[in-house]
Amino acid sequence: MNMDVRPSFLLDGEEIPFEPGQTVIQAALTAGHYIPHLCYHPEFVPHGSCKLCTVKANGRPAAACTLPAQAGLEVESETEELNDLRRTLVQMLFAEGNHFCPACEKSGNCVLQALGYDLGVMTAGFRHFFLDRPVDASHPDILLDFNRCVLCKLCVRASEEVDGKGVFSLAGRGISRRLIVSAESGRLADTDIAVTDKAVEVCPVGVIIRKHIGFQTPIGRRRYDVRPISAQALEDAPRKPEARHG
């Protein structure tokens, strides 16, 4: 297909071509333009909950991960106002959960943390909730540390759509919204999860942790030590319209 006839929209003044059916973030990443995101994962149908990817489309705020690309749309993303919003959202997530990075196996490979670095978040700033969220260590191979959950639902989606299991779900409402597992006992050991499940791999933060392999990569060589998430996300972005589950 001739590139010139592909429809396109403007992102911070640059023309972004897209395939029909793509959302703004999908088209932007494919075209090599980063928009911060947390709950969006190229292999899954966009969820639209974290709001890190908020942009202004023709002046109106919208989540870039769920906003269908449309010809002629004028999208702003790299503005002080929007980055300020994103910083505040990251701060809110840090204040909501109990994130003690120095003791977290995900540190260095964690999307939330990397977003904080990239956006220049120096502190949660808000009062911490210090919610009590006990850890589930019942499973021989997998640890669940609910303290770090950002409620992106990726594990729920992966378990249902890829693993065909339904090990996880989100329950509760408002600030009590929480991750639960599919067992009457409430213990991960009593579910049919396997360490090879997609659900185990997909968590962007340090909730679903594979045991016995912690802290393997030395500091300095971990994923976001090497390059900031804004560069890494483009590295990972599918170059073609992606295959999606679900």
Binding site: F94, H99, F100, A103, H128, F130, D132
Partner: peptide, 18 residues
């Protein structure tokens, strides 16, 4: 200026908050 994880987040000592 708050310097370091403990000053910024409560850090390791705050792990007793529960």
């Amino acid at each position: 200026i708050a310097m370091g994880a403990c000053a910024v987040t409560g850090g390791l000592p705050a792990q007793r908050n529960h």
